[in-house]
Nucleic acid binder design. Structure first.
Lengths: 134, 134
DNA sequence: ATTTGTGCAAATCGTTTGCATCTGA
DNA sequence: TCAGATGCAAACGATTTGCACAAAT
């Protein structure tokens, strides 16, 4: 509880009602992958009066404060991940659900040389799944 | 030239003026990474009367016909790749330019077991680059 | 003649923003 | 008190779609 207030103020964010609520939903129960829309619905279901715009703003603020990580999945929607460690994802095509991959897939020893003057910022890996046809 | 007409009709697509033009721009000069907007500008520059909607439609048709591959980069824009082989990309953050990676990054021997009833459809890897700070 | 493609403008979808109003330190 | 947050609605940018017209088989 107080960790959360702490977490927010350490990040330079005022612990407002809605930020505490969203923080609680996000960080209260292990690793999570959420979209803005989803989190908005959860907040409403939890009787937290909040606007979708605030959910978007909050997710972005949490992300630049380093409390969340944005996940690069193509398509329209943006996902946010509470698991900040280096890891990758399964993505199920229909349900659009993300699952953490159990291990590193990248062979770091074979990382390519980036072009002159550039460095590697991040490597995104998404393993797309489809329903197995029988 | 006739390859292209051939390519289109093999794919069940009528070789119309605009499809031939776009096909020519796309497949006429090695591997390419394009957005709809970009290809639209090129077509106009090449004095091909075409509408942006048709460019979108055509890119999607080419993709479902297996002539193009969609690249999963997060963010708003969708990229299409004429290189159909298994490969990955560098992405420069500001310029939003894609570059083919010289080699496979994925350690295929360590591919994870997909969840029950699912199979791996595709693995997307994007190596994000940033300008090296001096 | 029939089917398929094209162009335009309007519609959609996720996300952002401007601005007036509220709220927490 | 007063900077910073919130909510709403309008703005946005990429993409899709509905429909009348045009072109290909």
């Amino acid at each position: 509880m107080h960790d959360l207030r702490r977490k927010l103020s350490d990040a330079g964010l005022r612990p407002t009602r809605q930020r505490l609520r969203l923080g609680w939903l996000l960080f209260g129960s292990g690793d999570r992958h959420v979209t803005a829309e989803r989190l908005f619905e959860e907040a409403l279901a939890a009787r937290t009066p909040i606007s979708l715009a605030t959910v978007y703003n909050t997710l972005n603020q949490f992300t630049s404060a380093g409390l969340l990580r944005e996940i690069a999945v193509d398509g329209a929607k943006t996902y946010f991940d509470t698991n900040l460690s280096e890891h990758q994802h399964f993505l199920t095509e229909e349900a659009q659900i993300l699952i953490d991959l159990p291990q590193q897939l990248i062979d770091m020893s074979r990382l390519p040389e980036p072009p002159e003057g550039m460095e590697i910022a991040r490597i995104d890996v998404v393993v797309r799944l489809r329903r197995k046809k029988v």
